[in-house]
Amino acid sequence: MSAEQQLLIAQHVSLQTQETCVLCVGAEGTSKHDLSLAILKIPVKFSLQIRTASSLPLPEENADTRPRIDFICFLINMADRDSIQVVEKSLSLVDIRYFLGRACLLVGGAHSHKRMTDIEQVTALSDSYNLPLVFGDIKVEKERDQLARRILCMVEIAAGFKEGVSPSVIDSTKYIST
């Protein structure tokens, strides 16, 4: 197992620290920095760090000082075919425990006339990794704020700051066909 892969192993979240770190992974042009800034603007009760990466694996330098990552947000722009490939590749390097409510897939440009990727492709990706889909356009200010809040909401649950609610509780509300 390489050093990069080890980095992405989910660790048990300790409630005492109240520190979280979110990783945003997306190719160029997915506005991940805008999103990160929008998230940081929202006041929260815990300390929040956001790191961005244009693809996984993460570089080896600084690996020892990097904090534990609680939540990964993958970004796709449907108008850009490369962005989905980057995410597809990166997903294969992520520890399986992240897919139990500690990751999400943010999809931009779903209604854009310039879209290059099929919605089916995105849905298939989300189905195979059990990634919740979040749609919205980061470039529109109102939507960006809303997106940031939605991601924060998921981070809060994933990091265990909501009492009595965990990702698996939420998963249990899914309808299971008999």
């Binding site: 919740p132 909401c153 998921m154 939420i170 509300t173 899914k174 309808y175 066909s177």
Partner: peptide
């Protein structure tokens, strides 16, 4: 469930 409830559910838990 597939048409209406599941999409709503996903939005529900991440929204205000």
């Amino acid at each position: 469930n597939d048409l209406i409830l599941e999409p709503l559910r996903q939005l529900y838990f991440s929204s205000s």
